Amino acid sequence: MTTIRDVASRAEVSIATVSRVVNGNRPVHPDIRERVLKAVEELDYRPNFLARGLRQSNTCMIGLIIPDNSNPFYAELARAIEDAGFAAGYSVILCNSDLSEEKQLAYVDVLLSHKVDGVILIHQTSTPLKTLERILAENVPAVLANSDIPLPTLDQVLVEEHQGGYLAGQYLVSLNHRRIGCITISPPHSYIAKRIVGFRHALAEAGIELTTESFAMGNGRYESGYQAMQELLQRCPDLTAVFVFNDLMALGAINALHAQGIRVPEDISIIGYENIFYASAFEPGLTTIAQPIAAIGQECITRLLERIQQPEKPPTHITLPVELIERSTCRPLLAHNSIVESRSFS
């Protein structure tokens, strides 16, 4: 393996000069700098940034733990965080907990062993204490995103979940839907509860009450949306609209309807949540509540770097707005058609 000594010998300079060029922390004559860079390229020299970071008490590496990298929302959010981190001079180590607390704790140990400068945790459960205790015990800064866990001592990046649920309900009511179902996510995280409250609030303003039979649950994945839609149809065959708590499950729900010969939106309207890429690529285009993915990523990096640089700074909780994106999976009902004849499905 090429060493800094090899580069110094090839460029006919001292090791200290090579170090100054590579680190960029002191001025070097342009001719000498060019000679060193040429030697670096010819010898394919790769500095040991981890060792350098340990000497300088930082590694310029950040850990990112997400619950499910097969979900496009988390993939897109991870990309947004990686882009923001790279722009700030940090490398991001991605860890997928796969909805497993045991796997998440194992990844925390990996990140700590790599001496990361901080950790970002996305969509944690209501009991992430083991994970956080392990991180904070090492005095490593952490930021929670999209979690809404009552931990006032930690920086958090949140979205307006209540408003998101309210917008979905308000929109369906404005289209004259009254027989409305809902596919939520289990286990019921705190942010899910806020979304439900907002949705119920909008429907209650129109005199619509959601019964227990109007709810089905999935785990956030495509197949669970498909199965939940089947269950919902069995219990409530006369639905005209369904609010699905993430886009991936919404796409599964739409295909479950298609499999039974039910058209979207002609027979049942569907509204999702998140606005992943496939929401616009799918046909028909999915009407959804958009989370500000790029803004979440940028705020996560901003908050974490502020915490790294100012460890005594009071924690901040940032709440970002959501937005209704109208596409093609919802249609208005005529007022006299809002009460429809029950349908039967085999």
Rank of each mutant, 00 (worst) to 15 (best):
M1T: 10
T2K: 03
A8H: 07
S9T: 14
S14T: 08
V18M: 13
V28N: 06
P30S: 03
K38N: 09
L50S: 10
R55K: 15
I62H: 00
L64D: 04
P67D: 10
N69P: 11
A78D: 06
R79M: 09
I81Q: 02
E82A: 09
A84E: 05
A84N: 09
A88W: 04
G89N: 03
E102C: 03
K103A: 12
K103Y: 05
Q104F: 00
Y107K: 08
V110N: 02
L112Q: 07
S113T: 04
V119Q: 02
P128T: 02
N139T: 03
N139F: 00
V140T: 15
P141D: 03
Q156W: 05
V157G: 08
A168V: 03
G169E: 05
L175N: 13
T184I: 07
P188Y: 11
H189M: 11
I192F: 08
A193E: 15
G207A: 09
L210M: 10
Q227H: 10
M229I: 12
M229L: 07
P237M: 07
V242H: 10
N246S: 04
H258M: 10
R263Q: 15
D267Q: 07
I268T: 01
N275Q: 14
I276R: 00
P284E: 05
G285Q: 12
P292A: 03
P292G: 03
I301Q: 01
N337C: 14
